[in-house]
Design a protein around this nucleic acid. Structure first.
Length: 226
DNA sequence: GCATTAACCACAG
DNA sequence: CTGTGGTTAATGC
């Protein structure tokens, strides 16, 4: 287990900021800080879940086995909890989490975590806010994605990544094309075609993993048109 | 009918 | 892992 100091951690969640010195002492002794490499599995669907997972740094994908392929449910960026539903909703993990970039994760004993929720209203409230925001985001994506055509969804996803994850129009795309297909519910081939199409129309530029959004206005139009 | 969209397959860098 | 061509099925003028 990594030596770690929670009270001085510069990656605290907004919920954790409400904890007292004493509570940090307790959390320090009942949590583990683990570093993951890109591609490492953080926890796996089907395994027993005994901890709450907090993404301290990095980016992960949350994914679940479907009837034929893997479905990517969400991309989660630090700082965020990403194992709450699977810890409290069901003893067994209902989904997997895999690091898309080098990441660090705090695993917190779930009994202790539960205790904070009981004892500390502000902590609980902050947590609920985070869970609600995630849920609303998911609803938004589901509503859009089930009705847009492939270019529309891909455009939406690129814009979302630029705005919410990387905060720039030029970034290293964290997913393979096949994973992007699993995220938006289409085929790998369609993704390849749409990206080439965007590229030949000079809407985006990409070589390998690096994506550069050249014409954001057009991309937004495509996203809205569906 | 004819066009469009996208999935599935196959094969090649 | 990605790019492309052929084929097929569904849907919409």
């Amino acid at each position: 287990m990594e030596n770690h100091n929670c009270i001085n951690c510069s990656f605290k969640s907004s919920a954790a900021k409400t904890l007292s010195k004493e509570e940090f002492k307790v959390i320090e002794n009942n949590s583990a800080l683990v570093f993951f490499k890109k591609g490492d599995i953080i926890f796996k669907q089907g395994a027993l879940s005994t901890n709450v997972a907090y993404l301290r740094t990095g980016i992960v994908k949350i994914h679940k086995r479907g009837p034929s392929r893997e479905k990517i449910l969400r991309i989660s960026k630090s700082p965020s909890y990403f194992g709450i539903p699977t810890t409290f909703g069901n003893k067994i993990n209902q989904y997997s989490a895999t690091a898309l970039e080098d990441s660090s994760v705090c695993f917190i004993d779930s009994n202790l975590f539960q205790n904070f929720i009981f004892k500390n209203g502000e902590f609980a409230y902050k947590l609920i806010v985070e869970l609600c925001e995630n849920e609303l985001n998911d609803y938004e994506r589901y509503a859009n994605q089930s009705q847009k055509q492939v270019p529309g969804i891909v455009a939406e996803t690129l814009i979302c990544m630029a705005d919410k994850i990387f905060n720039t129009d030029r970034f290293n795309f964290p997913l393979t094309q096949s994973e992007l297909a699993d995220l938006v519910g289409t085929s790998r081939e369609s993704i390849s075609r749409v990206l080439s199409d965007f590229s030949s129309n000079k809407i985006i530029e990409f070589n390998g993993k690096e994506i550069h959004i050249l014409k954001r206005d057009i991309l937004e139009q495509i996203s809205e048109k569906g």
